[in-house]
Amino acid sequence: MKKSVFFGTLAAAGLVAGFAAAGTLDDVKARGELNCGVNTGLVGFAAPDANGNWSGFDVAICKAVAAAVLGDPTKVKYVPTSGQTRFTALASGEVDVLARNSTWTFLRDNDLKLDFVGVNYYDGQGFMVPKALGVSSAKELDGATICIQTGTTTELNLADFFKANNMSYSPIAIDSNAEGEQQYLAGACDAYTTDASGLAATRAAFANPADHIILPEIISKEPLGPAVRHGDNQWGDIVRWTLNALIAAEEYGITSANIEELSKGSANPEIDRLLGTSGDLGPMFGLDNLWAKRAILASGNYGEIFAATIGESTPIGLARGLNAQWTQGGLLYTPPFR
């Protein structure tokens, strides 16, 4: 009896929360600020500098959405979320968007009632081993001890991979990336596994990067993308098309350098529609016509953001790989703006 009352209350509260979620756009506009859930700190993706200014690949999404909706990329309140609290923070309304290198999975989409609006980084899980170990393939890791971050999809992928290849391993549970590096360098585990982007960043920061190799096998698909609450389609569309606008901008050659010129009118009608020179796209989801232009101006198009935060010219040095435009052999393919 008591239990049913308790669950009834929870359900009622959930309903109220559901109604509350319906007007995220209005809430954000009324607040004058976007609450964006980010990582507490992940090299290249989200990190505050000494003055508390956040920057990074995920942070750029927050800035673009804030620019599109509020007209000012600085009107963001960054809410650092841990691996355990990120989805609850989104579901409870603590944040409006979660741009926190989170993998889009069936369970998270349906069981946790989130909506992943797209993919901003195609990642995959890899292994790093010391060169001295003499291993050149993940298939040779039978019986190895492996450092693995708890509460992530990587933990499950690792189990799947070793089971599928009929191998055994002993996991060393770690709590954060920094701890993982420390354990790995101290020799507590033979191999360190996490997303390939994380491995690259970690290896680049080692005293002797050349002593470590990242094995060629990528054992999982990790499409990382921004997520919003389930049930508020208008808000989901805004975040989705803001991300799409950044990707499309790169495809059409719109950069922060030439955007002013292009927005006066261009030969490509799709560019005109995107930048609001012609057509009426913005008002269809409650914004004005210049939303995409502002989003792109916030920190550049997708390619510019990539190059500035995690690209080959940065210390992390990630190649575009799967994250190139479809015209360049990658997976980035945005639906048309029409």
Binding site: T40, V43, A46, A47, P48, D49, T202, A205, F206
Partner: peptide
Amino acid sequence: TDSVRASFEWKGAY
């Protein structure tokens, strides 16, 4: 500590 280490300059200081 985590956010300081998330900047590339200080990654690796444990």
